[in-house]
Computed example of a mutant assay.
Amino acid sequence: MATKDKILEMLQQQDSFVSGQTLCDQLGISRTAVWKNINALKEDGYVIESVNNKGYHLVEEPDVIDPKRIGEYLHTQWLAHNIVYDKKMDSTNTQAKILGESGGDNGTVVIAEQQTAGKGRRGKTWVSPMGNCYFTVLLRPDVHADRASMITLVSALALAQAVENVMGLRTMIKWPNDVIANGKKLCGILTESSSDLEYINYVVVGIGVNCNQTEFPEEIRDIASSICLETGKKVDRTRLLAEFFNCFEVYYEKFLETEDLQGLVEDYNARLINRGKDVKIVEKEQETVLRAIGVDQRGGLIVEDKAGVQRSIISGEVSVRGLYGYV
């Protein structure tokens, strides 16, 4: 552990001041070294009070994701035991795919505070301001290649549950993978895969969660929000990430048992925001009003026409919208 981290740990363990001499004695360093490391912590965003003859007191920690602290909340068997973290990177999906191609371990997670080239669905750019969660999970599922898209729904279900567990915010899902609170979108999920003939080499699940963002561009203000705006509380992003990993591992392993959503359909449908409601199905620029019934075991949305005839539609081929707006 670096000296700076050792000093931080000592400050975190005390509610009062820690003297400079105590830091010197316990760490075997000079007063000058203590002063330099305290300044380095301040540059990292830590608010540290310094008082002559008292020492140093940690007043406030910065709003940064702490990969080490994720482990304090983690109870997974294999997921997120290897974390790649950086304050800024081009895209967590891009970096995870590089790991996927170079033999990266199943369950590796890539996390960034900010992305300079974040990816959205259908080639769109995902805007990535500070204060949110941007991360990608690298998976190597032993399933047929046509099952990869189902992992997107597994991810949405896990995120909805994690937000509810940590923040107490009731969340729903707009098929297939938008997590919704009070009618507004909280996240984006992009799943990409590399397959060889019929089987998967790796899957990367990229997720961007609006956590502590308080302002949105005018063009999306009516449909997008953040957990902070919806709860009035600041999000502990480190804890939220850990809870997502806890939830995801449970749901993902259920998916692997049957290689479909058989064990998750009931939970998913309980959160499906349009279930039992009429929706607009946009298919090849044609709009049809049908009733959403729920998802099937393959993740398709079951819809019903006025004659009672049902069919399943597949994500990527159609778009589903509410009759009077986003949901």
Score class of each variant (00 low, 15 high):
N39K: 15
N39I: 12
A40F: 09
K42E: 15
D44F: 06
D44G: 04
G45L: 01
Y46Q: 00
E49M: 10
E49P: 07
S50A: 15
S50G: 04
V51R: 13
V51I: 14
V51G: 05
N52Q: 12
N52P: 09
N53G: 08
G55D: 06
G55M: 05
G55T: 03
H57T: 05
L58V: 04
L58Q: 07
V59R: 13
V59G: 07
E61C: 11
V64A: 10
V64M: 11
V64Y: 09
I65L: 14
I65F: 12
I65K: 04
P67N: 09
K68G: 12
R69P: 02
R69K: 15
I70Q: 00
I70R: 00
I70M: 13
I70W: 07
G71T: 11
L74A: 09
L74Q: 10
L74C: 08
L74G: 10
H75S: 11
T76P: 07
T76A: 04
Q77M: 12
W78M: 03
A80L: 02
N82T: 15
I83K: 04
V84H: 12
V84N: 09
Y85T: 02
Y85N: 08
D86Y: 07
K87N: 10
K87S: 11
K88S: 13
M89A: 01
D90E: 14
D90H: 11
S91L: 02
S91P: 01
T92D: 06
T94E: 12
T94H: 09
Q95I: 08
Q95N: 12
Q95E: 14
A96M: 05
A96S: 06
K97S: 06
I98T: 11
I98N: 08
L99P: 03
E101D: 15
E101S: 13
E101G: 13
S102L: 09
G104N: 03
G104C: 05
D105Y: 10
G107W: 07
G107M: 02
T108P: 07
T108M: 11
V109K: 06
V110I: 09
I111R: 01
I111N: 04
A112T: 07
Q115M: 05
Q115K: 02
Q115N: 03
A117T: 00
G120T: 05
G120P: 08
R121V: 06
R121C: 01
R121E: 12
T125P: 03
T125R: 10
V127M: 11
S128M: 02
P129G: 01
P129T: 06
C133V: 11
C133R: 04
C133I: 15
T136D: 02
V137P: 08
V137K: 03
L138I: 05
L139R: 06
D142Y: 10
D142V: 13
V143Y: 02
V143H: 01
H144S: 12
D146P: 03
D146R: 12
D146K: 13
R147F: 00
R147P: 05
S149H: 15
M150T: 08
T152E: 03
V154S: 00
